[in-house]
Simulated scan of single mutants.
Amino acid sequence: MPEVYVAGIGTRLPGPPVDNEALAGALGVNREWIEQFIGTRTRHFARDPQTGEIRWSLADLCAQAAERALGDCAVDPARIEFAVLATATPDALMPATVNLVADRLGLNQLPTYQLQSGCAGAVQALDVARSLIQCGRYRTGLVLGGDVSTKHLDVSLGPSGAGPAELVNYVLFGDGAGAAVLSAEPEGRRLLLSHVLNRLIGTGLDPGQTVEWFGAADRGREDGRAAVAEDYKAVEQLVPTLAAEIVWEMIDDLGWDAGRLDFLLPPQLSGRMTARIVEGLGLPGAKEISCVADTGNTGNALPFFQLERLADVIAPGQRALAAAVESSKWIKAGFALEAV
């Protein structure tokens, strides 16, 4: 099977950063609680937290990220033979957001795929794209990941209008999108996608996160359901364990020497959780590539933000491992890269 390379990477964040002081003021909570409990400094919102106006759609952000990815490796859009988008927050049930993005990029007469998934979705999209190229049918494709979580959240509620399981999402998440050009040729960034892990392990486990089909800002609460609910205690308990399983399983599958791992892209739930995960992995020789403290948890965009930072520092011959855990129904995901 042909090898598959990450040739170009692009990301997009909406608007200026929202710091903890501004967010605490909007929510009516304590700034110190956000900093100590979550460990995230800033995030970006596609929706104005004061007026509720939606300023960027997911399609807006994904199209702009894709343009940057194509420009990053100087690949003409005419070379793109398929597109895969992973998101938990599509702009609408239909049409699929991936098709709106393709339209904006001038892509036509090509297969498109949209995966409905949480934080593991970006890795699932990479897995699908890698398989499409390895089967020999295609040579170049576009992979996208992004989420606009704030459309599910109503920041005017304040602490009295949202329970703890819901309120934590207001400080965890930010909006954003990322894109990567995958190629059968070692071009552009020349990052060999050596391995992808994508596995559901949630049989018998309660969901750690639930996202309803409505947003709290555009529907009533007559039935008492929250738009987004998080079992943060379950997440805190399971994610570090699953992250370790992902990393060591991939190291074993690849036959790599853990002492020769150069970079680690850990799960990015929050700044505080990421620090715990990295400490527990016991890989002091691997440099951490994280972004969540500055971007917030952007869901399916996060691996692309990490990839973008990695691409600027990785040297030929160096190796990197990325891990992602989805808590909605517990998915282990990850991928391995080598700079050539």
Rank of each mutant, 00 (worst) to 15 (best):
G215S: 12
D127Y: 07
V278N: 05
N169P: 09
A74F: 10
S290C: 12
G255V: 10
S156Q: 14
V340E: 13
C119Q: 08
D252S: 15
A165W: 03
L126K: 03
N297W: 04
L192I: 02
L182G: 00
R47W: 10
S156I: 08
A69Q: 03
G15V: 03
R79K: 12
K287L: 11
P111K: 08
T40Q: 09
P2H: 06
K329L: 14
P164E: 12
A226M: 08
G121W: 04
V340I: 14
P266Q: 04
A63E: 04
G220S: 08
A226V: 08
V128A: 04
Q134I: 03
P284V: 10
A216L: 13
A96S: 11
D60G: 09
E245Q: 10
G10A: 11
A59S: 14
E249S: 08
V211P: 11
M273N: 09
P111Q: 07
A184E: 14
L85D: 02
F335L: 06
W56G: 07
V239W: 01
I246D: 00
A275V: 10
E338C: 05
A63R: 01
G39E: 09
A24R: 12
L115D: 02
A229Y: 12
L254P: 02
P49Y: 05
G285T: 12
S328L: 13
L265R: 03
R55G: 07
P267E: 02
N300Y: 04
P17G: 12
L58Y: 04
S117R: 05
T97N: 01
L13E: 04
G280C: 13
Q268R: 05
L197T: 08
L281M: 10
A244K: 14
A234S: 14
D252T: 14
A7T: 05
E222S: 15
Y170C: 05
D103V: 07
I80H: 02
A315E: 15
V247Y: 02
V29M: 15
T97G: 00
G28W: 15
T274M: 06
D147M: 14
R12E: 15
N297Y: 06
R31T: 07
D252G: 14
P266T: 01
I80E: 02
I34M: 14
S183A: 13
P159D: 07
L172M: 07
S327I: 05
E166R: 03
L337K: 00
I331F: 11
G204P: 12
V143Q: 00
P95V: 00
R104H: 10
A22S: 13
K151S: 05
A7E: 09
E245T: 03
L105H: 05
D312G: 03
L193H: 00
P284M: 13
